[in-house]
Design a protein around this nucleic acid. Sequence first.
RNA 1: GCGGAAAUAGCUCAGCUGGUAGAGCAUCAGUUUCCCAAACUGAAGGCCGCGGGUUCGAAUCCCGUUUUCCGCUCCA
Length: 487
Amino acid sequence: MSKPTDELFKNVISHAKEYGFVFPSSEIYDGLSAVYDYGQNGTELKNNIKTYWWKAMVQLNENIVGIDSAIFMHPKIWKASGHVDGFSDPMIDNKDSKKRYRADQLLEDKIDRYDKDGQTDKAEQLQIEMDKALKNDDLLRLKELIIAHEIADPISGTRNWTDVRQFNLMFSTQMGAVADDADLVYLRPETAQGIFVNYLNVQKSGRMKIPFGIAQIGKAFRNEVIARQFIIRMREFEQMEMQFFVRPGTQKEWFEHWKTERLKWHLALGTGPEKYRYHEHTKLAHYAESAFDIEYEFPFGFKEVEGIHSRTDFDLSQHQKFSGKKLQYFDPEINQNYVPYVIETSIGLDRMFLLTLINAYQEEDLSTDEKQDSRVLLRLHPCLAPVKAAIFPLTKKDGLPEKARQIMDKLKIDFNLQYEEKDAIGKRYRRQDAIGTPFCITVDHQTLEDNTVTIRYRDTMQQERVPADQLEKIIGDLVSWKNVLSI
RNA sequence: GCGGAAAUAGCUCAGCUGGUAGAGCAUCAGUUUCCCAAACUGAAGGCCGCGGGUUCGAAUCCCGUUUUCCGCUCCA
């Protein structure tokens, strides 16, 4: 625990790779920037986190249902949502000050200055030229204009500019055989819009009454300018989102409701509350009325894990406008039609995964006076552990493996288990510690006599002898979702 | 995208001023012990990130490139 934090983070990344949690994508081809793959244990852990969220949101709330919308969506959706216009700015960097500017804003500033200096001709002409270049997406021309009009960086005062580049956060591709502008589709940069455009479908087919929510887990894609810090910011990532539709005027109380509910969900896993905090946005996004982040203290500082946003009726209204379809709700209680307001909870699955891994990772010193000893373990909540239990025959002979297999075969229908007979028993325990297996079951000679086994607990390293018949119940209780969902 | 650093076995790293790759742990096969790792025997594993250059000869020097990390920047 006293280790320097960046060393801890490094160790977690190494551990994640060594034990099959996370691999760099396309590694044998040198990797692909900011893209990662989940390995055999990582996938199990990630699936368990998804299950925990899905149960907490969809299964336990009668007024929340889940959907799975397509990654490809009608291009107009991103116009309506504001993603297309908000993210196609021509940017230029000054090489000396290392500052980045919007090329069109630099030119606008220059036009203003021309105007002030009474050079209205020049101002007008530049305005026309700029508009033309912007309209044609002529980035080269924009740079020419900046050079020709001798625009200098206000900070460094130099005119040492890079080329003008278009920064569009959305990945695009062509749909259909003909590469035509009309066939341009985007990979969704957020899953939320898939919920908004299905709002009416779900409301009608599910006979949902406001307030109600729609949940979704799915991939989203953002062409980040720079993506770093392992899986904190990836170009392809997974979100777990819920949009909660409420009557206008009640959004404040629902916002508070979900703010507390969501933090409870995090804390139920046993993470220390001091590791979490709320962070209020002061600079709000175009759609938001108010926004809070739930932040977790990573080794490199507090980072957003989940956002709770009050999105007003912005999205539904926009889609109503762009699609021409009414997206309203008739509220029989007040006898009124309205576009619902929306409270969004949006959690980054990959960040949640990393949080879980970092929080669980522990290097423990077990040294005694006689012997130096230590172990690395993942103190994962049993509900989330990739492998629920491991089964070991104490030795490879005397029929112990056969007996262990028998027990294993019965249990593996309900639980993800591992069987191991290689190496000394202590070594096998330690191997399971490293992937966070909460329980190890050992079959020994006594098992053959009275059908009891020992169960060894990861966190305490204590053992207990129990009848083999009861294993299903014992493990079942320990890994039950009740342990986190009924808090 | 800019600046800095790095890249050698699955992991952590060594490899001096250029002379055809090494350790510990991990892995695999076997032996021994049997309830908490590092015991014994053996094995496997590396285009020294990739490409080019200098040289009789490059992991080592130079250039480019990719990836990662740290700052700045970006994150609707």
